[in-house]
């Protein structure tokens, strides 16, 4: 399976509040809250680190989760956020863009 690279879109607003990340798409005003695991993936989305490496190197290390389950959950999370333009996904490294 091809590697996925993820980067945070510049068309979002985000803030960490009490361990939860609030994210809003400035394009369609969709509002999300991310739990601690999702927030960690979000914060690691630098466009250069493959998703599998984020999950193996960060999520499985910091949280007590099964690696295969974590990979599946991360893929689903990334799909959902990318549909709202909140995460950019590519099979090539991405450069993070700022407003």
């Amino acid at each position: 399976m091809a590697e996925k690279y993820i980067a945070r879109s510049s068309a979002i607003a985000a803030r960490l509040l009490g361990g939860e990340m609030m994210v809003m798409s400035t394009a369609d005003s969709t509002f999300f809250t991310l739990d601690e695991v999702a927030s960690a993936i979000w914060q690691a989305a630098d466009g250069r680190t493959p998703l599998s490496e984020i999950v193996a190197g960060k999520i499985c290390q910091e949280f007590d989760v099964d690696r295969e389950q974590a990979q599946r959950d991360a893929a689903r999370f990334v799909d959902e956020l990318s549909q709202h333009g909140i995460l950019l996904v590519s099979d090539q490294p991405l450069m993070e863009s700022s407003p």
Binding site: L17, G18, E20, M22, F31, F32, T33
Partner: peptide, 18 residues
Amino acid sequence: SLLAEMNQKALTLGLPIS
């Protein structure tokens, strides 16, 4: 709503959100 939940959370934590 999610937004109302976050407002409530900010209130509980004593933090400004707006």
